[in-house]
Write a protein that binds this DNA or RNA. Structure first.
Lengths: 214, 214
DNA sequence: CGCATAGTTGAGCTATTTCAACATCAGTGG
DNA sequence: CCACTGATGTTGAAATAGCTCAACTATGCG
């Protein structure tokens, strides 16, 4: 069950808790073109892709619209699994796949016995939510400079004044080019707001960053 | 306890469940400048702002950095409340405020008695996570056209072919100007991908939208 | 050392913004 | 019912921020 740790939601669980989950779960094998769930089915299981490839899609007027393709270990269809309501889409194995099924009811029982599991889940989700919210805030800023300011600020607020920084990755995440990121970093440095070395940025004046990311 | 419904996390709970929460919670009044929590405190309570205004801030080298100001009914500091670890920041009432405190332990007990509450929380969070993820995907696209395509597509996938659409709001959310949004909508219409009326957009060709939002 | 990867810098180009003028519509009060 | 107002959307032309392309530097790594 070690691969479960790769799934962010499970990352905080301890060995015993993972084992508890393993105890109530079943591994099922789907060959190519096998349907995993449909919109007429209720969320009675959590589905975790262990190995293989799955496509999630909707159908409208007979045509299928792919929503997403999963390959790495992932939990999918979780909104329905948590609510117990119908899945909003279809899921189909597009290659031979192994999927771990956790029964919703068993999961609820487990949460009853060990509510810490639920708390850990919620804690992971809450952190992620806050993180994503701040990402969205910076992405909807207009100027490249303010996007970058807010990007650095976010990292700064999470941890140290010294922030790991890759021009390329920042560019990708912000929807900018590496050239622009590089130039804007230069500007921030000129303004004395940051210092930069190879792959680190040191925040000198967070207040200024905050004003830039308005 | 009705105001709890305004908080997304609690929106799915039924009357009885809200009452259960009310039973274990305490309302506390903070006057201006009163500290609500500090980084040396562990998350032993959930804090819900019922009335008033609260600032959440960090201190580094004696200087305070405001992270966020809350005024409407909100749950704040939830990451720590879920984990039980230390709060990552300070919270202080900046005007006379009423705050609802839910003890973490009581909450865990409650989840044990009624695991559906936890499930409902997780379901709300899971939905929100998926939503935010798709927002981020569209925001990190480069061209205005693809951002808008993906914006419309997201709304389309959530519900009907007829999508509520406000040029102004879309512009805000996408970090574009209303003029650009208007022009791009015109283009999508020319291409026969959408039809638009005053405040609605009708998706004619979702596949084309999908390709544009690559 | 040599090669691949990451970052920097400049110059021209183009997508988007800005600004300004106009159009459309919903609601309001006369 | 009409005129008035404010909010919302549209269109054009000029200005500019950020992109592209290309050449270069710095840095790590086998």
């Amino acid at each position: 069950m070690e691969f479960l740790r790769e799934i962010p939601l499970f990352s905080e669980l301890n060995q015993k808790q993972l084992e508890e989950i393993a105890l109530i779960s079943v591994v099922k094998r789907y060959s190519k073109n096998n349907i995993i769930f449909t919109p007429s089915q209720k969320g009675e299981y959590f589905f975790i892709l262990k190995r293989g490839k799955v496509k999630v899609y909707k159908t409208s007027k007979g045509k299928e619209q792919i929503i997403r393709i999963f390959d790495k270990p992932t939990l999918f269809g979780e909104a329905a699994s948590f609510t117990g309501k119908n899945f909003p889409a279809w899921a189909e194995a597009i290659e031979e796949s192994e999927i771990v099924l956790i029964p919703r009811k068993g999961f609820i029982e487990l949460m009853k016995r060990d509510p810490e599991i639920g708390m850990k889940f919620m804690s992971v989700m809450a952190q992620r939510l806050m993180y994503l919210t701040s990402v969205i805030e910076s992405l909807s800023l207009k100027s490249a400079l303010s996007k970058i300011a807010s990007y650095i600020l976010r990292k700064f607020e999470e941890g140290r004044d010294e922030v790991e920084f890759s021009t390329n990755i920042a560019a990708m995440e912000l929807g900018l080019t590496k050239e622009t990121v590089s130039r804007m970093l230069g500007k921030l440095k000129e303004l004395g707001i940051i210092e930069k070395s190879r792959n680190k940025v040191k925040v000198k004046n967070p207040q200024a960053l905050r004003e830039l990311s308005s």
